[in-house]
Design a protein around this nucleic acid. Structure first.
Lengths: 337, 337
DNA sequence: TTGTATGCGTTATCAA
DNA sequence: TTGATAACGCATACAA
């Protein structure tokens, strides 16, 4: 591994000049610049990140905080879409992506420690849960961070990007009402996640405004088996259901299985609408009507916000009046509703 | 951010003693040890990774090389399963995971540069393609690496873990023959990936041994739409097909859609068997018979091999006589075959 | 067992 | 525009 000294020697200049030439070339003569470039290329020089980081106090890497690989991570295309978005935004940067897997128990503390101790220049948090302690950590931390998905307590202070889940929940429910359905159930996602809460809120609002009953709702985790469980319970407690809004496509697919098994036809007996459209919906049988969740865009946007923070030299993840970036969801009509 | 000097001062010892105490405590008196521990805890000391890395010449991080987020990454649970396996193996380590997204064009070179320049202590490569240049890079590189999935040219020299795809392809095909099928088509995965090649080989061997025709095969990428395309072509060229072995569950699901649309019943007219069982198969309609692909186990195993290499101080990814770790695949019988 | 001294490779300061 | 020189925070050889 050649060092900067060797490059400088080969180029016939001092180490300082070599360093300047390699870092943008301010105040370097054209000749020196060329000589250094040549030498670096010929030697295959790559700067030592640790040495650079030691003096610049930057690490040139950002952390992506993801929850303990749960069923959702393993099964959903969610993490793939997130990575795609992050990767796209990072493409023309030489920042590295460090994956911080937040384990359930000690995880929160360990991730917190990692984030506050300057091992990354910034962080993007996905799949945030109410009690994971990340908000407090980041509000009081010197590391800039952007959440994908609205934070709970500190939504007015932390940076985030989100999809308008309330509106999306409203649109989904309104679509079902527009189909003439009057007994609309909801399979809700975890109510310790903003996405789960907000989608349910949209459903609740529309039904309430229409003067319809809002008692057909169960809360489960985001997965196919949970969707089956939820649907079974709903069918038992509310056999007159004629439509279901599921908080994710995986849930909707589970629900559809149970509905079919119960002899209900989709969408004639029961219309079903999901949420995400990350691949599952299009290939479901019947093809699932759903709300398109712009996961890739959100992840990209979060990274871009973070890059802007880094650029501006911000040392905190507390925003003043910058509004969060909120994407709209969009109805994708297929055959299930 | 407190430094080692401050901890040492607070503990009333020299920096060297503090350093020793914090790194295993060899040759430190119990009193000194306790004093340093206390001081570190009270100050919330966290070692500066860059500084440590500069002197130890280790980075305490490993790279996970993944291909450009393609359709498969976005749609399959593949990457989620991989992360789960990697994360599990890394759980009781303080190694960090750096994600190296290999972009299509310049990606290979840039990943190669990154790997050889000591920014990570080791690497795990997933979803390796024949022409991505990674094998040559790693064979001639000072960084230990383990492939998930058999390499091409250097399978006898590089470390890897894999599933026995040939046997799996055989088992799948034999299962179909056992069902009495005689016209067995294959939807093959990319033939520039070992998984695609080997699964096809298994299919080919069994049909050949049984004296059956082997002309009903098309090669496509791993995704649902590609499965549809492939099945449409197969139906056209070989209308007498009575069974399909698809190289992935996504392909199988696409195939099943086209079969249904063509009025074929599954499994009566055409039996379908997939590959992976990472979530798609169980929730398909009809539930998909498939070969379970131990992705999580493979990823874990690859990381464990890598950890062993790091432990032993190996500085290359060339193995001598250590055999690769090869997992068996297992038939999961559901309703489609 | 402890402390002193040195160096890891880079950037930043400042005088030339 | 250039080049000495001084950090950056840590681990370790060596002397005590």
């Amino acid at each position: 591994m050649p060092t900067l000294d060797e490059v400088a020697a080969a180029a016939g200049v001092s180490r300082s000049t070599a360093s300047r030439a390699l870092n943008g070339g301010a105040r370097v003569s054209p000749e020196a610049q060329a000589a250094v470039d040549d030498a670096a290329r010929q030697l295959g020089y790559v700067p030592n990140r640790a040495a650079r980081s030691l003096v610049t106090r930057r690490t040139d890497s950002i952390g992506l905080v993801v929850p303990e690989p749960d069923e959702r991570l393993l099964t959903d295309p969610f993490i793939g879409a997130t990575l795609r978005g992050v990767s796209a935004a990072l493409a023309h940067t030489d920042l590295q992506l460090v994956l911080l897997i937040a384990r359930q128990g000690e995880g929160a503390a360990s991730v917190a420690r990692y984030l506050r101790s300057g091992h990354v220049d910034g962080a993007v948090i996905v799949s945030h849960h109410r009690e994971d302690g990340l908000e407090k950590t980041l509000e009081t931390s010197p590391v800039p961070a952007v959440f994908v998905g609205r934070p709970f307590e500190s939504a007015d202070r932390l940076f985030y990007t989100d999809v308008d889940n309330v509106s999306a929940g409203r649109m989904a429910t309104q679509h079902l009402l527009g189909l003439g359905r009057r007994r609309v159930a909801h399979i809700a996602g975890p109510q310790d996640m903003a996405a789960g809460i907000d989608r349910r809120t949209g459903w609740l609002e529309v039904l309430t405004e229409a003067g319809l009953r809002t008692d057909a709702s169960v809360e489960v985790d985001f997965s196919v088996p949970e969707g089956e469980r939820a649907m079974a319970r709903l069918l038992q407690s509310h056999p007159d259901i004629d439509a279901v809004f599921a908080a994710s496509d995986a849930l909707a697919i589970g629900a559809m299985r149970v509905l079919r098994a119960a002899g209900k036809s989709i969408p004639d007996d029961v219309a079903v609408i999901g949420y995400d459209d990350l691949g599952l919906a299009a290939t479901a049988i019947p093809p699932l009507t759903t709300m398109r969740n712009p996961v890739v865009e959100m992840a990209s946007s979060a990274v871009e916000q973070l890059l802007a923070l880094l650029e501006s030299g911000t040392h905190s993840s507390v925003r003043d009046d910058v509004p969060p970036v909120v994407f709209p969801a969009r109805l994708v009509k297929r055959l299930s509703a």
